[in-house]
């Protein structure tokens, strides 16, 4: 299974490196949302401090949703998904390969969007960068696990891109609440330990949804 996951990951990243279809789209949307929110909120220190965590997660989740709506759809439309399904392997490897690939792409978007946020909103992070990485990573993994599963489901339907956010956001709400809460505490300058309840929620959510994805993915991708 590890070999299949690495093979799928290699292929996804190689294709993305050449086409830059998903990464460019996500990156542009992330920067646009940051600029719009910056114009709307201005440089009021109190407002920015209150909303910073929400701003970041709106940027990350919207960009991720836009990118992930294409993850299965393109391969489904071009018939390539059938080629992968013909391989004699555990089909949950496809879920993990896609999930890890998407997580890498979204983390890259976050790595660019975060410094832009700092500059635009005049919100220096100082020593909070390190502690911030944990809620960002755990929140991203949970959200991407949900989105990967629902991206595969929505690719089988006529509504496709429209269906993904409608399905994924309500289901991912516990992860988002946890991620926004933990990020807010870190940005407020509180120690990471104070965000333990949110981080525990995120870890539980991540394990649960990766497990659900592994179990149900075979039935999701096989045509009825």
């Amino acid at each position: 299974m590890g070999r299949a996951i690495l093979t799928l990951l290699w292929k996804d990243l190689r294709v993305e490196l050449r086409t830059k279809e998903i990464l460019t789209t996500m990156m542009v949307l992330a920067l646009l949302i940051l600029v719009i929110l910056n114009v709307a909120m201005g440089q009021n220190v109190v407002t920015v401090k209150l909303a910073a965590s929400g701003v970041l997660w709106v940027v990350f989740t919207f960009a991720a949703t836009l990118g992930l709506s294409r993850v299965f759809l393109v391969e489904k439309e071009r018939g390539q998904l059938s080629g992968i399904l013909l391989a004699p392997m555990d089909r949950s490897a496809i879920f993990l390969g896609k999930m890890i690939g998407s997580t890498i792409l979204v983390l890259l978007v976050e790595a660019v969007a975060l410094p832009v946020f700092v500059v635009l909103f005049n919100f220096p992070l100082g020593g909070r960068v390190g502690p911030l990485l944990l809620p960002l990573f755990l929140g991203t993994v949970g959200f991407i696990a949900v989105e990967t599963l629902f991206s595969a489901i929505s690719a089988q339907t006529r509504l496709r891109e429209i269906l993904l956010p409608l399905l994924a956001f309500p289901v991912a709400m516990p992860a988002l609440v946890g991620a926004v809460g933990a990020t807010a505490k870190v940005l407020d300058g509180l120690p990471l330990q104070s965000a333990a309840p949110e981080l525990q929620l995120l870890v539980a959510f991540d394990i649960l949804f990766v497990a659900i994805g592994l179990v149900v993915f075979e039935y999701v991708v096989e045509e009825e």
């Binding site: 292929k11 294709v15 050449r18 071009r78 018939g79 390539q80 059938s82 080629g83 013909l86």
Partner: peptide, 16 residues
């Protein structure tokens, strides 16, 4: 493992 399938689509990646 026992079968090979050639469908309407080539199953190939154009950018590879």
């Amino acid at each position: 493992r026992l079968l090979g399938f050639v469908g309407h689509d080539s199953f190939l990646y154009g950018s590879l």
